[in-house]
């Protein structure tokens, strides 16, 4: 979808990728479920009190869900999207493949998987962090890398061994 030549974006997108490093799959799905239970749309304050989490903790999760296209936030109102409706009615397996579609389209993720594909060998953590540091700064590179491994593993596109610190690609099991 998005093309990486589009130059307004890279730093901003990378920062966004950084934003999903602050939330786990379970939290994002839990939030979507909560919005669904509240009738598919609700204001943030209501959700916050419903799920008993203050805005400080809810914020990053909300941002991540928005970034993944699962929720829309406008004027303090949270709304479900078609994608999240589809996600909720899906099984554990199908949820994965839906999220895979989203993650696989993120430029940063693309860049790293492309790196691995071109190299034709497992990549060292160091190599990837260095490459990321070039675009996001060394400060965020580690976090982005962590998020990359987390989401990459979840959608079964990435295999990472924390012992050898080697990252390689994998084909999802259906």
């Amino acid at each position: 979808m998005s093309n990486s030549g589009d130059d307004v974006g890279p730093p901003k997108r990378v920062t966004d990728f950084h934003s999903i490093s602050k939330a786990s799959v379970g939290q994002i799905l839990g939030l979507v479920e909560a919005v669904d239970e509240a009738g598919g749309t609700a204001d943030v304050a209501t959700i916050s009190s419903e799920v008993d989490m203050d805005i400080d903790r809810l914020g990053p999760i909300l941002a991540a869900a928005e970034f993944l296209g699962l929720l829309e936030v406008e004027d303090g109102d949270v709304r479900m999207t078609d994608l999240s409706r589809k996600l909720l009615s899906a099984s554990v397996r199908e949820r994965k493949s839906i999220v895979r579609g989203i993650i696989d389209d993120l430029p940063v993720f693309r860049r790293v998987t492309e790196m691995a594909r071109v190299a034709g060998r497992p990549l060292d953590r160091r190599e990837i962090v260095d490459a990321l540091a070039a675009s996001v700064g060394s400060h965020q590179a580690e976090e982005v890398f962590k998020a990359l491994v987390y989401w990459g593993r979840y959608v079964e596109l990435v295999r990472y061994d924390s012992e050898s610190e080697l990252l390689s690609l994998r084909t999802p099991s259906k």
């Binding site: 012992e163 050898s164 080697l166």
Partner: peptide, 10 residues
């Protein structure tokens, strides 16, 4: 020894 360790483990 991260590099050494990694090679050894690999």
């Amino acid at each position: 020894f991260p590099a050494v360790r990694r090679t050894i483990i690999a």
